[in-house]
């Protein structure tokens, strides 16, 4: 203790240097990880200046000429501009609208189950797909839904010809959202179930005394009890409205379904990695990244304002 009091007396720079010297090993411990974050987190941010340059692999980033907003203008005049923006927004928005409530519903239903083994079974089975690869999920869908797959064979007596689940642009969004829900509902439900355990059982007892039925208890106690978790997960998923997952779209789409399926990240991949238009693709990707971050920040700010003074909402910061 005396040592601490003595330390508190030092001031300014000497205090700073003393702390630094005292905890030098802490700084050594964080150094390797920090270096990685700087290189692979901030390195790409520096690389974003590509979007404002005419980047050339041979010349290198520093030597390439500045072109201002030329690539952004080009993208605005791109024949696919409207289609890409529309597809990205619609896919992300529909996915959020359908996908976000599912885990809440699942958690609420599981919470009503009194037979423990059944509850565990449903929880374990629904959580599992979270851990398998997107490519595996898409492969399974491929086997189920292709023209000679099991689904089409079962539907055969009722349809004229097979349904192009994977080749018809009209089906793409349904397939994408369906596979996303199948894969992630159990994971988020598990998070909500963990939050549910923090609800005080006394609330339920009091509600029963007052004659509330199960539906009323679910609606008035359980749901408000997990509202902070709902808010946080909502803020975190709002970014996906404008920035959809690359892998799932890339694996599910084909030139036949570009009409509804081609989104900003897949276009970036085709123009950048496949087409070597690095600057152009960086500019398109930048629009997507900025929009996604802005959405998260906006959602956080709005919910913080709305929830001010109440315990039942939470925000990231």
């Amino acid at each position: 203790m005396t040592q601490r009091i003595e330390l508190a007396k030092r001031k300014g720079l000497s205090q700073f240097l003393f702390d630094f010297w005292r905890d030098y090993d802490l700084y050594l411990m964080l150094l390797p990880g920090l270096a990685g974050f700087l290189l692979f987190g901030y390195g790409p941010m520096y690389g974003l200046i590509m979007a404002f340059k005419d980047f050339n692999l041979v010349r290198g980033l520093a030597e390439s000429a500045w072109v201002g907003f030329r690539w952004f203008d080009d993208f605005y005049n791109d024949p696919y501009f409207f289609r890409l923006i529309r597809n990205t927004l619609l896919l992300g928005t529909f996915n959020l609208i359908w996908g976000f409530p599912m885990p809440i519903i699942l958690a609420l239903l599981l919470n009503e189950i009194r037979i423990i083994w059944f509850r565990r079974l449903v929880q374990s089975v629904s959580f599992f797909p979270y851990f398998i690869a997107v490519i595996t999920v898409v492969s399974i869908m491929w086997m189920l839904f292709r023209s000679d797959g099991i689904v089409n064979r079962i539907l055969a007596p009722f349809t004229e010809e097979y349904v192009g689940f994977l080749t018809d642009p009209a089906w793409f969004r349904t397939m994408y959202i369906g596979s996303d829900i199948w894969q992630y509902t159990g994971y988020f439900a598990t998070i909500y179930l963990a939050a549910l355990t923090a609800i005080d059982p006394v609330l339920y007892e009091a509600a029963i005394m007052d004659g509330a039925n199960r539906w009323q208890r679910m609606w008035n106690i359980t749901l408000p009890g997990i509202l902070p978790t709902i808010t946080i997960l909502f803020i975190l998923s709002v970014g996906t409205m404008v920035s959809v997952g690359f892998e799932r779209v890339f694996l599910l789409y084909s030139p036949a379904t570009y009409e509804t399926a081609d989104v900003l990240p897949t276009y970036v991949y085709r123009r950048g990695i496949m087409g070597y238009n690095f600057s152009y693709a960086t500019a398109v990707g930048l629009i997507d990244s900025v929009a996604a971050t802005a959405m998260v920040l906006a959602a956080n700010t709005i919910l913080r304002r709305v929830g001010r003074g109440s315990d039942s909402t939470a925000t990231i910061w």
């Binding site: 974050f37 941010m45 974003l48 590509m50 960086t282 971050t293």
Partner: peptide, 17 residues
């Protein structure tokens, strides 16, 4: 570090790094 989680520069800059 938080900033790296909130904002990703995207596919092409990462590829370049």
């Amino acid at each position: 570090l938080l900033i790296t989680m909130l904002f990703g520069a995207g596919m092409i800059p990462m590829y370049m790094v």
